[in-house]
Amino acid sequence: MGRKSQTPKPLRRRVAVRAPRKTLLVFCVGERTEPDYLAALRSQREIRDVASVDIQIEMATTGSAPLTLVRAAVAAKAKAAREQAEIDEVWCLFDVEWPRNHPHLNEAITLAAQNDIRLAVSNPCFEIWLALHFADHGAWVDNGGARQLRRKHDGQLDKGLNGSLYMPHRHAAAARAARLDERHRRDGTAFPDNNPSSGMHLLLASVERNGR
């Protein structure tokens, strides 16, 4: 009895399945430093194919920046919903500020929670997040002290930053910021007294989650 001839199966090319891109709408008040950092983050090869980060800078009036920023984010989210735009998350980045806190901080946080606006709050200011890229820091610090810490590592005197200095250390910064959050929870240190801290590690996790 002869062997049955078998029809060769057609060779099929395997098609790589890419994770769907995530679109984040990010509001911040900084003129250069925060946007420069976000632009550097967005340009990373491992992030470009994972998330689309739309950076919008809200030039808020002095003294009401966080609340003004959150209101702008709420309005943008409502507009996106009306226009059926594909935005997965809306974020606001702002500072607490020391020695004198921004007014209306609690109102800003409450409004954000009511509208599912995610927050990355740095205490006292964004420079503490930058300093955490290079070293742990656990002591209370004001704005000037945070800027000195940042300057010690990158030598930057003015606004703005060289993102290539920071991107290789962003995961170390996230780990340090997460440990600070855990320490504040353990010690019962409530906002806005959770100085130093930065919620930027939460934004970073959201941006990179699909790609790691």
Rank of each mutant, 00 (worst) to 15 (best):
C28F: 00
R32C: 07
R13W: 09
V74M: 02
E86P: 04
E97D: 14
P103A: 07
L67N: 01
E107V: 00
V26H: 05
E107W: 02
R14D: 13
R21Y: 08
T33H: 11
A139D: 14
L41T: 06
G138T: 10
Q114E: 13
R12T: 15
E46K: 12
A78N: 05
I47N: 13
A40E: 13
H133D: 07
V70L: 03
R71D: 04
A39C: 09
D49P: 06
A113D: 10
A65D: 04
C28L: 07
A131W: 12
E83I: 02
K77C: 05
T68A: 12
T61F: 10
I87L: 01
A73H: 04
L93M: 06
A39T: 14
L105W: 04
A113R: 12
A108V: 07
R100Q: 06
S64P: 00
A131R: 11
A75C: 03
G63P: 00
A60V: 06
T23W: 12
L111F: 03
I128D: 10
H102F: 12
R118Q: 15
L132C: 10
A108Q: 09
T23I: 14
D116F: 04
A112D: 05
L41S: 09
A73F: 02
H104I: 02
H137T: 01
A135G: 07
E46G: 12
A85R: 15
V96D: 01
R118C: 08
H133P: 06
D136V: 05
I47D: 06
L69N: 03
P10S: 14
T62N: 10
V121P: 00
A19S: 14
M59V: 12
D88M: 00
A19N: 13
L67T: 00
R13N: 12
G63S: 02
A113S: 13
W129P: 02
W91Q: 00
A72F: 00
I109S: 01
L105S: 01
A51N: 05
A80V: 01
P20F: 13
A65P: 01
A39D: 14
Y37T: 04
I47G: 02
R71V: 03
P20D: 13
W98G: 00
V90K: 04
C92G: 01
H137V: 00
C28E: 03
S43F: 05
A135T: 10
N115F: 02
R14C: 12
R12F: 15
V50N: 11
L111G: 08
A135M: 07
A73D: 04
V17D: 12
L38A: 09
E31I: 08
P35Y: 09
N123M: 11
E58G: 01
L41H: 08
L119N: 04
R21I: 15
A139Q: 14
C28S: 08
C28M: 09
A108N: 08
L24E: 13
A120K: 06
C28Q: 07
A16D: 11
G138L: 08
R32W: 11
V53P: 05
R32N: 13
A81I: 09
D116K: 08
P20R: 15
R12K: 15
Q84M: 07
P66E: 05
R48G: 01
T23L: 14
V29N: 14
V53T: 09
A85W: 03
T7G: 08
V50M: 07
L105M: 02
A112T: 05
A39V: 10
N123W: 08
G30V: 10
R21G: 12
R100C: 02
